[in-house]
Design a protein around this nucleic acid. Sequence first.
RNA 1: GGAGAGGUGGCCGAGUGGUUGAAGGCGCACGCUUGGAAAGCGUGUGUAGGCUUAUACCCUACCGAGGGUUCGAAUCCCUCCCUCUCCGCCA
Length: 425
Amino acid sequence: MLDIKLIREQGETVHNQLNRRGPGTSADLDRLLEIDKQRRDALNQSQTLKNKKKTLSAEVGNLKKKGQDASGPMEEVKQLNVQIKEWDDKSNSLDEQVRSTLLKIPNLPSETTPDGADESQNQEVRQWGGKPSFDFKPKNHVELGETLGLLDLKRAAKISGARFAVFKGQGAALLRALIQFMLNTQTRDNGYEELYPPVLVNEDSLMGTGQLPKFEEDLFKLRDDELFLIPTAEVPVTNYHRDEILPEESLPVKYAAYTLCFRREAGSYGKDTQGIIRQHQFDKVELVKFVKPEHSYDELEKLVADAESILQKLNLHYRVVNLCTGDLGFSAAKTYDLEVWLPSQNTYREISSCSNFTDYQARRAMIRYKGKDGGKPELVHTLNGSGLAAGRLFVAVLENYQQADGSIQIPEPLQLYLNGQTQLG
RNA sequence: GGAGAGGUGGCCGAGUGGUUGAAGGCGCACGCUUGGAAAGCGUGUGUAGGCUUAUACCCUACCGAGGGUUCGAAUCCCUCCCUCUCCGCCA
């Protein structure tokens, strides 16, 4: 959520920054300011009257104590109450309008986020490693996985439907090894504390991180309870500190969380229908940070490096992309995607998305910090990034480590997690 | 699911209709004291909104959330949420 004061004081700048995301993004601003003005007027009216009421009530108390007649001020307060109720109703309703409008306005893009209409205008920042060369035609992960008995997509469709997978035997073990490897790396080497949170969350949590109210159609919702399945661990982990004031000296706070993630994928019909690239249910290790505002962009660079370290240890070729304004997520100010090389598609595919949300989520979720020496609490900046998406990493390992005979070589760092095994199939 | 207890400031804990943002204690900050420290003494110590150049002053609100009664509610009434204990059920 943007700061209403910022909109009041620098409306022009906010307007321009928002419209970098696309024409019309800031359409509501003038109307918003008008409502806000009315809201403050109503509030002032109500507060003035309440002040009067307080004085009169005290007078009633005093008069009664002395045994004198208090019916005059009592009657006066009764009439004040009618007016107060009117102004309060008005100001509450206007306040609600301001809030609901603000909740639907996205974050301002960073200065360092490139302008662009869609993903084709994302900026490649760097590449790491090199494309593997094959002296045979590399197979895709579906063919590899099904031939080797690692994946069973047909039965998954029978059990649940499209966009679900069964990982089987060595495939299940590999997925588990990847998760374990990622968690260990992030907690032991990169200094994150592990959290294992609920995957069902309430509406407030989804408001806090920005999935609601605008993107309900992307979420699985329970029918009989006001709960949603999380689309990412960002939701429970960021909301872990909702409505809290963190001690300044505890920052930066860094968490790594493995969870299942659930997405309806409405609106992506026909995309990635083959295989396990795009699933309704997938596994992910997520990294979340709470930091001081002045450090958040440095922390974003470190976060990306932490996510990259997984791909580097597994020696997988990838590139880092700075998302342009047209591709930038709703709550983010700046996002780097990590895209891993997939030989079968002869292209890079997103395997991690690392974002700085500045104070946008913190203001929605009221996550602040305060120094020891007093002073006002200030909003933290929140960041998060996949470290990494396990299903897609599974795909990358299969495709990049496939051998001419159809077997899969197991990357050295994973062998420890697979009882020393060196290949699959 | 059944029965009961409870939700007050960073923490503990008073407070059952009157000026209480809230006693007392702990913690914390600053000062005095000291060779230094402890103890002791003193002062201060919530959040949001409005107003504002201002994190100053002032005003309003907040004692789990929402509604109600009343001139006046942390205190009374209603609804909901959460926590704890016992029983049942269960991975």
